[in-house]
Amino acid sequence: MPLDATAAAQRFAALDLLSTLAVVVDAQGCIVFANAALEGAVGLSRRMLEGAEFAPYLSAPSLLRAGLDTADGQRPSYAAMSFDTGLQRPAQDPLFVHVTVTAVEHTDLRLIELWVLEQQARQDREERLVEQAQANKELVRNLAHEIKNPLGGIRGAAQLLEMDLESKELKEYTQVIIHEADRLQSLVDRLLAPHRHPHQLVDLNIHEVCERVRSLVLLEYPQGLKIRRDYDISIPEFKGDRAQLIQALLNIVQNAAQVLSEKVCTGDAEITLRTRVVRQVTIGRQRHRLALELHVIDNGPGVPDHIKERIFYPLVTGRDGGSGLGLPLAQTFIQRHHGLIECESMPGRTDFRILIPLP
């Protein structure tokens, strides 16, 4: 029995919570329900859309009609067809989308979901970052343990050898071995640091973290650098590890300050700390109703093209003398808060965006 508008609105109300565009059609392809995201995309109200055939809203209507014919509502729900096309919008340019057609089980209805291709690419990038960080963490952890044991043996052997040497010149060589072993030990300790300390959650305000980092960096750069505040003071407190969040943000801001060295000398170096609340955010395939969005924006030269895709890899750096550990450690600390860091960069503007779910 066909659903009336009220029954459809009640049955499919959950689709309004999605940021993806969604529409339910009957076997003839006429709209039974359109979610709020689709209303906003096409600029038409749900009432105006209901009852109209949906295929003409797509640049390739024949593909949709084929998908509707393929879907079988008597079998368990599955994506019968998917394709890329344009979503036609009155008085606006088409919106390029990825479309899937899914049968609604035991009915003649079809669920059509449309992902804006830019949004889909972003979600894919976020998933890659999460997977990359997890793989990096395991690799670094295992590698550090493999290095640590023989390193202690090398240092101990050099010390014993030095005790038996009488020549001052030869002792200089053992000192070089001991010094380099200590340097490598320090590097290994930094690689293992995120895994050694327990996650200590307290109620915190993100702006206290921002102000702490801001004061630390300005102590290091008292002249030539401006760190601007652009805070949304309505952001609620949340459970977090204060020390880890300070360290993560400090690594990013210090990294930005270091690449601004030339502008610091001329007095026009600028970093902006911006906080916002965003709604209906997907982080690593997990949907969150609310999330903190913290931007660290600088007016520096940008991330070199050859390392843009690898800046969160351990030991990758575009700066002479850099360790390549600051950003991977920051990513690890933010992921321990179920969040993510991503970066968009071009000459004159680099934006590190930190996302952390809010309760």
Score class of each variant (00 low, 15 high):
T174I: 08
L249W: 04
A181M: 03
L192P: 08
V176D: 12
V253S: 03
R190G: 08
L245C: 08
P194I: 08
L187H: 13
D232N: 14
D203E: 15
V202D: 07
D232R: 03
Q175G: 10
K263G: 09
Q247L: 12
A157T: 13
I252Q: 08
A157P: 01
N255G: 14
Q185I: 00
I147P: 00
C210T: 03
K171T: 06
V253L: 06
I177S: 03
E166I: 11
A257I: 10
H199W: 10
R228M: 02
R229Y: 01
I206Q: 09
I154P: 01
R196F: 07
R212Y: 08
H197R: 15
A158Y: 10
V253P: 03
N251G: 04
I177G: 02
Y173K: 05
L160H: 12
H195Y: 15
E262S: 12
Q258A: 08
V264H: 13
P150G: 09
S167R: 10
H195R: 03
L249S: 05
Y221P: 01
L160K: 11
A248H: 05
V188E: 05
Q200C: 07
T266G: 02
L160I: 04
D232G: 02
Q258N: 11
Q223C: 00
S234I: 00
A243D: 10
Q185P: 00
M163L: 15
L192I: 14
H195M: 06
Q223N: 06
P222S: 06
K239S: 12
Q258E: 11
L250I: 00
V209L: 06
Q244C: 01
I177V: 15
L249V: 02
D268T: 15
L191H: 04
V202Q: 14
E220K: 14
Q244E: 09
L225N: 09
I233R: 11
L249E: 08
E262M: 05
L249C: 06
A158H: 09
D164W: 04
R242Q: 11
P198G: 03
Q185L: 13
N251F: 15
L187Y: 11
R228N: 07
I147K: 06
L216Y: 06
A269T: 08
L143M: 14
L192C: 06
R183H: 09
I154F: 15
I252S: 09
Q159V: 13
A158Q: 09
E169M: 13
A158T: 12
E262Y: 03
V264S: 11
L161V: 06
S167H: 04
L187M: 13
L170D: 14
S215L: 09
G153S: 07
R212F: 07
G156C: 03
N255D: 12
E208Y: 01
E262Q: 13
A269F: 10
L151I: 02
R183N: 10
D232P: 02
I233F: 11
H207K: 07
A181L: 04
K168F: 09
D232Y: 05
F238Y: 15
T174E: 12
Q254T: 12
E166K: 12
K263L: 10
L191R: 02
A269W: 11
A144T: 04
V202Y: 05
K168W: 08
R228G: 00
I147Q: 07
A158M: 09
P150E: 11
S167G: 14
D203W: 14
E162Y: 00
Q159C: 03
A269C: 10
R212C: 12
V176M: 07
R228L: 11
G224F: 08
N142L: 12
C265S: 13
Q247D: 14
A243G: 00
